[in-house]
Lab assay of single mutants.
Amino acid sequence: TSSHKLRLYERDDYRGLMSELTDDCACVPELFRLPEIYSLHVLEGCWVLYEMPNYRGRQYLLRPGDYRRYHDWGGADAKVGSLRRVTDL
């Protein structure tokens, strides 16, 4: 099985509160109590970021690497509604 891990930060450049995720999350704002995510670091696996909860809205593919600001993943703003692991490519 492949492993997945990413870290979410409330501010750009990996500042502020950090939360780690290793499984799908249908509602990021509810789980982490963060209305917006300004940076993230994908440590393992690929993920799909959705701008709205319950895997809706615009989708962004996140490969392992650094995303210091939301425009690094192509986002128009810092809204992160849900995240899902990519298990098949």
Results as ranks from 00 to 15, higher is better:
Tyr67Gly: 02
Glu10Trp: 07
Arg33Tyr: 12
His4Ser: 00
Asp66Gln: 10
Val48Asn: 06
Ser39Asn: 00
Glu20Phe: 01
Pro35Glu: 14
Arg85Pro: 03
Leu6Ile: 15
Glu30Phe: 05
Leu61Ala: 14
Trp73Thr: 08
Trp73Ser: 05
Tyr50Asp: 01
Ala26His: 09
Pro53Asp: 07
Met18Phe: 15
Ala26Lys: 12
Leu83Glu: 01
Leu49Met: 08
Leu8Phe: 09
Ser3Asp: 10
Arg69Gly: 14
Asp77Gln: 10
Arg58Tyr: 08
Leu6Asp: 01
Gly57Lys: 06
Asp23Val: 09
Asp66Gly: 11
Val86Cys: 10
Val86Asp: 03
Leu61Ser: 12
Gly81Trp: 02
Leu61Gly: 13
Pro29Lys: 14
Ser82Glu: 01
Asp13Met: 10
Tyr55Asp: 01
Asp77Leu: 08
Arg58Ile: 12
His4Ile: 05
Gly45Met: 01
Cys27Gln: 07
Tyr70Pro: 15
Leu8Lys: 04
Tyr60Arg: 04
Ser82Ala: 02
Thr87Leu: 13
Val28Gly: 04
Gly81Leu: 00
Arg69Ile: 10
Leu62Glu: 01
Gly75His: 09
Tyr55Lys: 01
Leu40Met: 15
Arg7Asp: 03
Arg11Phe: 14
Cys25Lys: 07
Val28Asn: 06
Pro64Val: 04
Pro53Cys: 07
Asn54Met: 08
Val42Glu: 05
Arg33Gln: 15
Leu89Val: 13
Leu31Trp: 14
Val48Pro: 02
Asp13Lys: 10
Asp12Arg: 11
Asp23Ser: 09
Tyr9Ile: 03
Asp88Ile: 05
Ser39Pro: 04
Arg33Lys: 13
Leu34Phe: 15
Tyr9Trp: 03
Met52Val: 08
Cys46Trp: 02
Leu31Ser: 11
Arg7Gln: 06
Glu44Leu: 06
Gly75Tyr: 02
Glu30Ala: 09
Gln59Ala: 07
Glu36Pro: 05
Arg85His: 02
Val48Gln: 09
Asp77Ser: 10
Arg56Val: 11
Gln59Ser: 13
Cys25His: 04
Arg58Asn: 07
Ser82Pro: 03
Glu44Lys: 15
Arg85Met: 13
Leu83Thr: 07
Gly81Glu: 04
